[in-house]
């Protein structure tokens, strides 16, 4: 039984379109470029509309759309822009930022002084697999199971990526805060 075009469009507008903001936000953080994010979001929504008959009514439309977005990004965009891993991952595990600030600012008040643009810049500089995991969790509040579904990895991998991604991010923001003089580097 095929739906009429009108029915299909109404269903799509009701269930998928409300997630456009989420699709755009994730597209922006994946691509790091507003114009590319718009193209990516539009392409995602159009693809989703064309395969709307494959969507199971009542299931998680947001996770379904974000999965399409991720595939679109990987196929069409990721190759064009190879972001270098700007962080030495081996250093991360050794000391947490909390270890550095536990004597000087254990409550993390220095975070409040960091401007939004710097936060976004730090997220954008994360290596791909950490960035997408952090964005899906901290920008879109997806559960670990949903992130596993969207990124196609086991929940255990989501956990470790989230841990390392957040720690890298924290380290970048800490270094920025020290550089800006919001905080003095601890002697330990």
């Amino acid at each position: 039984m095929s739906q009429s075009h009108d029915e299909r469009r109404r269903g799509f507008e009701r269930e998928a379109l409300p997630h456009l903001d989420a699709v755009y936000r994730v597209a922006l953080r994946l691509s790091g470029d507003p114009a590319q994010a718009e193209d990516l979001a539009q392409e995602t929504m159009l693809k989703a509309f064309r395969s709307w008959h494959q969507y199971q009514q009542g299931t998680n439309a947001r996770a379904w759309l974000l999965t399409i977005l991720r595939h679109t990004f990987i196929n069409a965009y990721r190759q064009k822009k190879n972001r270098p891993a700007s962080v030495d991952l081996s250093e991360i595990e050794e000391f947490t930022v909390f270890h550095d600030v536990q004597d000087t600012d254990p409550e993390g008040t220095f975070f409040d002084q960091i401007i939004d643009d710097e936060v976004l810049r730090a997220i954008d500089s994360l290596p791909d697999e950490f960035r997408e995991t952090v964005v899906l969790s901290d920008v879109e509040s997806l559960s670990y199971a949903e992130i596993a579904e969207v990124t196609g990895v086991p929940v255990g991998t989501v956990k470790s990526r989230l841990y390392r991604g957040r720690q890298i991010l924290q380290r970048q923001l800490y270094e920025y805060a020290v550089e800006m003089g919001y905080l003095r580097r601890s002697a330990t």
Binding site: L20, V23, A41, Q42, L46, V101, E107, D138
Partner: peptide, 30 residues
């Protein structure tokens, strides 16, 4: 400390939405 960090992150990055122009373009294309 970590809870403060997560709350800080969420507050700074969740606000952005799709530009109205993009919504209009997508509706048109549908």
């Amino acid at each position: 400390f970590e809870e403060t960090f997560l709350r800080f992150l969420a507050a700074r990055i969740r606000s952005q939405g799709a530009p109205p122009e993009l919504k209009r373009r997508i509706l048109e294309s549908l």
